[in-house]
Amino acid sequence: MMPTFNPSHFLSYCQSLYEADSKYDSEQSNRLDRHRHVEPDAAQFLANIATIRQPKKVLEIGTSTGFSTLWLAYGLRHCPNVGFTSLDIDKTRSDVAKSHLQAVGLSTLVDLKVQDASDYLSKNQKVFDFIFLDAERKFYSDYTEYLHRALTIGSVLIIDNVISHSGEVQYFLAVFKNDERYICHTLDISAGLFMAVRQEP
């Protein structure tokens, strides 16, 4: 039987998962072998935004092993009829994320898709209230027009690692900063979060 959600169990599970994954990542010499999930402060911020925004449609680009996915699902657990899709190209990692979601009783909230983000976005016809982007930064510029199309007035786009890897994302972020349809903020939370809120069609 799948466990029911329990807040205390969720918090202790996430703490243990963070510690285990941090240890694992520290032992990997190849960056691509690391799980590279968000820091707890950033994950909790995502949950808070989800709780405040009460979105109907949510997209996460970059599931990895599901740490941010867990916290987004946590923030969305009281949102009625929410549709939450999380993408990753690696099936093994997506399967691990699924097991974590099942362990805390939140798996029914998330549609985990194993698919290349560019392929998904190029075919996407949905508009999302909330998009979280934490994937391979070298591909971000390929997503720009697709992201514009997937956002509408009130939509929130959040991007991780914008301070720790500022040089890799500066041109991508500038597209949103220089677009009058968005109001943007860089937040000094963990590795740095960039938030763009759509103000105009």
Score class of each variant (00 low, 15 high):
67 F>G: 06
184 C>S: 13
192 G>F: 01
89 I>L: 15
90 D>I: 12
115 Q>A: 11
112 L>Y: 12
142 D>Q: 14
112 L>N: 11
115 Q>K: 14
172 F>V: 03
59 L>H: 07
111 D>W: 02
82 V>N: 06
161 N>K: 01
81 N>I: 00
70 L>F: 07
102 Q>E: 14
145 E>K: 15
102 Q>L: 12
127 V>D: 08
100 H>G: 10
181 R>H: 15
131 I>N: 09
156 V>I: 15
181 R>K: 15
71 W>C: 02
85 T>I: 13
185 H>Y: 10
110 V>I: 06
102 Q>R: 14
81 N>V: 00
115 Q>S: 11
112 L>S: 06
131 I>M: 10
134 D>P: 08
180 E>C: 02
188 D>G: 02
191 A>G: 03
87 L>G: 04
74 Y>T: 01
87 L>A: 07
112 L>I: 14
80 P>T: 02
132 F>G: 02
119 D>G: 03
115 Q>W: 01
145 E>Y: 12
76 L>T: 03
113 K>M: 09
117 A>L: 05
112 L>H: 07
86 S>K: 05
98 K>P: 03
190 S>M: 04
71 W>I: 00
57 K>N: 14
120 Y>E: 06
123 K>D: 12
167 G>S: 11
69 T>N: 09
105 G>W: 05
68 S>H: 08
128 F>A: 08
80 P>I: 02
82 V>Q: 12
125 Q>V: 11
180 E>I: 05
111 D>S: 13
70 L>P: 06
148 H>I: 00
121 L>Y: 09
77 R>L: 07
139 F>Q: 13
